[in-house]
Nucleic acid binder design. Sequence first.
DNA 1: TAGCTAAATGCAACTAAGTTGCAAGTATTT
DNA 2: AAATACTTGCAACTTAGTTGCATTTAGCTA
Lengths: 143, 143
Amino acid sequence: MGTALKRKAKKLLSSVKLRRTNPRVAVLGLLLAVDKPLTQDQISTRLGRNAPDKVTIYRTLESFVRAGLVHRAFLQERVWHFELADDCTEQQCHPHFTCTSCGDTHCFTGVTMPMARSPEKGFVIGHQRVQLEGFCPKCNPNL
Amino acid sequence: MGTALKRKAKKLLSSVKLRRTNPRVAVLGLLLAVDKPLTQDQISTRLGRNAPDKVTIYRTLESFVRAGLVHRAFLQERVWHFELADDCTEQQCHPHFTCTSCGDTHCFTGVTMPMARSPEKGFVIGHQRVQLEGFCPKCNPNL
DNA sequence: TAGCTAAATGCAACTAAGTTGCAAGTATTT
DNA sequence: AAATACTTGCAACTTAGTTGCATTTAGCTA
Ligand SMILES: [Mn+2]
Ligand SMILES: [Mn+2]
Ligand SMILES: [Zn+2]
Ligand SMILES: [Zn+2]
């Protein structure tokens, strides 16, 4: 991991009053670098030989979520994907697109969706999530 | 389960060329009756004493999904929720609202959302899913 | 109606994502 | 440098969903 990324990660950690430990710098630096949702397993693999323990990665991510640095980006499988909580408003994150052919996920950061309106009085819609699936350019049969 | 429901379930099964077995009639009848997403566990509990085996419920639901009778309505937890595949178009199902206070889920069947537009050439958006969370009328602090 | 067969079921064992408890280590404060 | 609250790693656990296989059954045919 680049020194610049490490510095950025440490700064971020301090800004939310989290201790600047090695596992946290590594995980946060990675999320800063890849800029797309990753699972615990993917994080572990990418950090390679001296990746922190699985439990530490989960707890690290949990602390990031609590601090508001990271979101769980719910995809359609059974595993959680985590990404930085930028490109989001209070009410909604950007849509996520997953290719049904190759499985790749893309962040549609430029796409904004109108908020759903409640069908009846009394509901308060605090947050909205949009998931998309289909073919990515690589797998598009018409291309 | 009511006789009418059973008859309806059997009819539906025949219409998609699935064998009319007891487990299938029971599970489909239940989904017809409750009209909201249920997990395998909830289905099993509601069917009570002589509910089919867990594996049978999963395989039953899988056959319904293959036949297009049922959708997996992905909610925010780690478990799958299944519901009848009506109130859906080819491109999107109705939004689902889950209350962050009491956990109840409501189907916003009347609410339609515009489809997201691809941010760049090449993506084909086949399906869109919208999840909402907030306070339900029961838990709304302003009510 | 009885028999045939492919499809469906039930059970036990398994997989894998995420959790919990606890002893040992360490970042920050003083 | 010492104190201590926070963090880490490991082992054991939980739980949703899967797999393999022997047994049963729905729907068909004779
Ligand atoms: Mn994203
Ligand atoms: Mn619904
Ligand atoms: Zn693709
Ligand atoms: Zn509620």
